[in-house]
Design a protein around this nucleic acid. Structure first.
Lengths: 245, 245
DNA sequence: TCCCGGTGCGTACGGTGTTCGCAATGACGG
DNA sequence: CCGTCATTGCGAACACCGTACGCACCGGGA
């Protein structure tokens, strides 16, 4: 390698004369980072691999992005850009709208299960353009439905908290499963002994497992978790309404 | 260094004859890891530093812990051990009990703001003894209050989701603030320009900020966030009650 | 034409998780 | 009392990481 380097300036000019004007852009970097994260997970994202995926050197990225941390902020905001706030047809339908956005958000977080840990590190990147747009539109929707600005803000924040918290644990499960490289069946089978030891000392949990596997017999697992997510969301919404003033 | 190594076996036996029976234990490692995480944050926890803090070599830790990942699982469960489920004095007081646990949990997560990103990586380490104990006791409490097992489980899961989601964003803020090494005032002042640019294009957000700073004038910031957390929690609880059957 | 700001990137540094083999120890069976 | 042996600590090494720095190179403006 080092030897080649010594001669390279002699026997050949760089074969592909580098067009020095932006062959690399911040957008390209961010979208490629997301692709890499989706494909291989959060621990597989390194500046070197990302550069490689872009046919570029690792350190070239630093011309367009200050940090890996900043890159992650950009990534988070970009992903929030996948969400779009539903339109409110009549003021009474704010509840459906909030539910729809919550579902969109859960789907997005499950599409990109690596976001959860990043969110904890990077905050919600509150000032990213997409996050700002999302907050603003959501606030407008609730305003149209009769919420005051502060009420609407509180509603959005609480709803986001529930969705993120819930989906984070789902995503962590999915990640663990993916890392193990096993099917869900094998995975469950593998930790059955630990399960049984738990049930032995905590019979109440055993009864819960029985009741659940009975109630869920024959149902699809994604159907089940959809329903559980909705149930919790509905509890939250049942306690929420605009004050008439 | 290497030279010294050659002679070391000659001019001296190891000064402190290593007692080969456990000078190191899994518990010590976990508690020291937590101390380190609290003191210096998640990116400061390395096996070498942890070993150093324990007067041990980095690789010695691997005799007691399989992985860094496993260590983090142990850490998470240990921290959950700080929580204790309140006692239910009468069946009607389940609401206060749930609120109390939620508060405990939020306080714990803010005491250890590094957990949020770890939780996303490691799952909730569902089978750790402390997590299991917590779930079981909480389930028992709600059972005494008239919830069925599946209802109680759904309630606990949803409540945890809200608390984790909410507190994660609080914790991320605290972490960012701590990393910047500035006071909250300086920090806010520093990103005022970005704030103003946002307000310019999104006047609704500007009105929200005004309304909030007016409503919160003179109040302590921790008092404010406590109240906001409680408000969201109450919405959730308002939509939750045991079915009489 | 010449220069100069912007861009790509090779090199290098300090740090990371983890494997491996060796040294040393205490407990135990004879 | 003396081997034997599983267990523990640990130094060295490997592959990889984020990133600072300096140089080569290009395109556009004077």
């Amino acid at each position: 390698m080092a030897d080649e380097q010594v001669f390279s300036s002699v026997w050949a000019r760089p074969e592909k004369t580098r067009t020095a004007r932006p062959t690399l852009s911040r957008e390209q970097i961010v979208t490629e980072a997301i692709k890499l994260l989706d494909a291989e997970g959060v621990e597989a994202l390194s500046m070197r691999k990302l550069g490689q995926a872009l046919n570029a050197g690792a350190t070239s990225l630093y011309r367009h992005v200050a940090n890996k941390d900043q890159l992650l902020e950009l990534v988070v905001d970009e992903v929030y850009g996948e969400l779009c706030v539903p339109v409110l047809e009549s003021p009474g339908e704010w509840r459906q709208a909030v539910r729809a956005l919550a579902h969109e958000m859960r789907a997005m977080l499950l599409r990109h299960p690596w976001i959860a840990p990043i969110l904890g590190l990077v905050g919600s990147s509150y000032l990213g353009p997409n996050v700002v747009r999302l907050s603003d539109e959501m606030l407008g929707l609730l305003e149209d439905a009769g919420f005051s600005l502060t009420e609407g803000n509180a509603t959005v924040k609480s709803m986001f908290a529930y969705v993120i918290g819930w989906t984070m644990s789902e995503a962590a499960w999915l990640l663990a499963l993916a890392r193990s490289g096993q099917t869900e069946q094998e995975w469950l089978e593998q930790m059955r002994p630990a399960m049984e030891r738990v049930v032995e000392t905590h019979p109440r949990l055993g009864k819960l497992f029985e009741a659940q596997s009975e109630a869920n017999a024959g149902r699809d697992t994604t159907e089940i978790s959809d329903a559980e997510f909705d149930a919790g969301l509905d509890r939250f919404l049942d306690g929420t309404r605009p004050t008439n003033h």
